[in-house]
Amino acid sequence: MAGRKIAVVGLGGIGGVAAACLSLSPENDVTVCARRQIDKLTFDHHEDSISIPLKTLSDPGLAEPVDWVVLCTKAQDVASAAPWLENLCTPQTTVAVLQNGIAHEERVAPHANGATVLPAIVYYNGERLAPDHVRLRHIRGHDLLVPAGPQAEAFAALFEGTPIDVGRSEDFLTYQWRKLLVNVIANPITALTRQRLGVFQRSDIQDLSLSILREAVAVGRADGAQLRDNEAEAILETFLAYPPEAGTSMYFDCLAGRPLEIEALNGAVVTAGRRHGLPTPLNSAMLTLLKTVSDANAKTP
């Protein structure tokens, strides 16, 4: 009998890959919390494709306390996941939050019934090909990164023997901001232009991106992140090496008419800038424009 009870909340690309990989360990007893019943999940990795049986709950009222919750909803959907968290969590539970942005603890703790909140940075590409079919692509380096400490070691143990590599960092805040810096240009610009990453080959888009990044870097430093003098240029240079045909989550959400995760991205920069007394006009402009799109999407039947 598996010893670690784990609930994965959210079965999109990130959650689907997490659920599939966690299910590969015989030490884990995994339950997926999703809107619909799914009994099997097809998992593609490299050239392999396997079918993984799933235990799924679609009613939060039937959920019982677990050792671990792996929260994989979009940041703006935390409140709607609250009924799951309230039933799954006790003070002995740890909630690993696999979401974009910063301030994971502030976002999740009010709904977690006294559970420990462990923020995680997601580097892997999890693509949802169908409701019951996901694909894992490794980007580079670790697939997940968490703050160093005892909870980090316990979290990494959940993925031992699976395709997911979990890293630990003593300077987690800096890595959070570096991931955020990529997201504050990639997501809003692809969503607003409705173009994939190839749009960043334009020199005017590169100039705009550098200005957005420099503004965000100043806020990140004030927030305690150890960012380099050439951080904005280094982020853009790395970003330009990504495949031009790739899209972003916000690009796909925009095309599909779904609400957008803007508050956790450029909104996080604006909020932190306000806290530190720093101006953020470009990130504020991105936030305003994308909130307008997101609000319109939310009203569309």
Rank of each mutant, 00 (worst) to 15 (best):
R168F: 03
F239Q: 05
E215W: 07
P147E: 12
V166E: 10
P259Q: 04
Q206I: 15
T292F: 11
V146L: 07
I52P: 02
T238E: 03
V117F: 00
Q99V: 02
T190C: 11
P60V: 04
D48G: 02
R258D: 10
A34R: 07
F159G: 08
L181V: 01
D207P: 00
A82V: 03
C33Y: 03
V32T: 05
D207T: 15
Q201V: 09
A75C: 06
P110H: 09
T73P: 00
D44A: 09
I205N: 15
S211I: 05
F159K: 06
A154E: 06
N230T: 14
L236H: 07
A63S: 02
A34S: 12
W177S: 07
D48Q: 10
L41V: 08
N28T: 09
N28S: 07
V219P: 07
A109E: 10
P110C: 06
G101Y: 07
L265M: 15
L24F: 12
I262G: 08
Q37A: 14
R221E: 10
A82Y: 01
V269Y: 10
R168K: 10
E233D: 10
V199H: 08
S284H: 10
R137M: 14
I52H: 04
D165S: 13
A264W: 09
A232V: 08
L173V: 07
I235A: 02
I139G: 15
T190K: 06
A115G: 03
A232E: 08
